[in-house]
Write a protein that binds this DNA or RNA. Structure first.
Lengths: 216, 216
DNA sequence: TGATAATTTGACCGGTTGGTAAAACATTAC
DNA sequence: GTAATGTTTTACCAACCGGTCAAATTATCA
């Protein structure tokens, strides 16, 4: 008997495990480059190498696929920010946060674009996550930064906008990759651009947040 | 007699002028929030308040509409960078470039999202512009920055990545607006966030590019 | 005013879209 | 091995998509 996916309560088959993995991998490809509305189930099915109805056997709707993908990716996407350590040295914490975010942009550009597409289009599917878990996490880390600034360990600045700046500058290399490579030209479009970016951004943020001795 | 749009060689009617304006306005709305593939002609027609065939009387295809929009917007989008003055004071040039870009993010978020969508999805319609006029302009301004750095007027840095950083941090407030407002919360989602952002970014880039006296 | 050209509309078309039904096929448990 | 369950496919549907057509309507101007 064929049970609708949602009704299957527990115990997933080996095949289920494998195929769902395969599908989400394909879905990431497609959603990341075309956004939700611009993607078609047929397209995902083709990338996954299976028929559309077969795909719909594992995820009953396009929405369900997208949901599953977001859920899986969002968590790991926030890991670098979670690792941000209140006890650590402020400058090196910020420096390594930048580096980690840049590594993610380099190694997981599709994940970055998945969110970028989603947020650009008004975040219709992840509004709750934005205002919930994400906001909570950012609030927490912003407080850490605020305390650092107050204690005179880094320059006074708005911690939220600092976080936004780190997000935008690093994710830029994933989301706007075509533009970056287009502008840099063929010669500079190798992986070296990430090292150059890391060097520049670390310099920018580290000197940019240094304490200015106004009254010593 | 009804002439196909492309065959009309010159002399546009008042109505043509008005309607084309109306359509491009509506198209900007729709393309900016859904991307090219995610947008439908019906949708644009509805926003423009006219029937689909009527809309197609002015622009014969969806592509033509998108093309016209890109052409109209791209030029003005690059104005702030063009104003970047080699003769001016480096710090104040950079500062006012940031401010102008931030003003555009505030006043023309749809235009920003139109490009963001396009580039995010691989820039299928503007690849030539990226590698042509845009690259040329950036090359030119990057050279200006390089000379400034060489002359010791600002810190040594990769000018291309500096430009990318300014683009990404400022456009972030247009492209990722939902996220920014979600994270800042209701209280801080007023227009004040742009002033806060301006203050932070000017501080970041100005101190970040200050000369460090290593050997005086 | 009337002729002429410009604009607008409703009906329509072939292809694509998200999704379904049912039967064929494969796998597993006993 | 066989029965039960899990998986895949073929055929299909209604809604939507980009776009066409011809007729109806409106604006322009001699």
């Amino acid at each position: 008997m064929v049970l609708p996916r949602a009704a299957r309560t527990q115990r997933r088959t080996r095949i289920q495990e494998e195929k769902e993995e395969l599908i989400l991998e394909a879905a990431l490809d497609v959603f990341a480059t075309h956004g939700f509305r611009g993607s078609t189930i047929d397209q995902i099915a083709e990338v996954a190498g299976m028929s559309k109805p077969n795909l719909l056997y594992y995820f009953r709707t396009k929405e369900a696929m997208h949901r599953a993908l977001i859920d899986r990716v969002l968590d790991s996407w926030l890991d670098p920010l979670r690792e941000f350590d209140a006890e650590g040295n402020p400058v090196s914490e910020i420096r390594s946060y930048i580096r980690r975010k840049l590594e993610m942009a380099r190694d997981f550009p599709r994940e970055s674009r998945l969110f970028a597409n989603e947020i650009l289009q008004g975040a219709p599917h992840i509004e709750d996550e934005l205002k919930g878990p994400l906001k909570t996490l950012v609030d927490e880390k912003a407080e850490v930064i605020r305390v650092w600034a107050k204690a005179g360990k880094i320059a006074k600045c708005d911690p939220y906008h600092l976080i936004f700046a780190i997000w935008s500058t690093t994710q830029h290399y994933a989301d706007f990759d075509v533009q970056v490579r287009g502008v840099l030209g063929e010669e500079r479009s190798g992986d070296g651009r990430f090292e150059d970016a890391a060097r520049f951004l670390e310099q920018l943020f580290v000197s940019g947040l240094e304490i200015k001795e106004e009254s010593a």
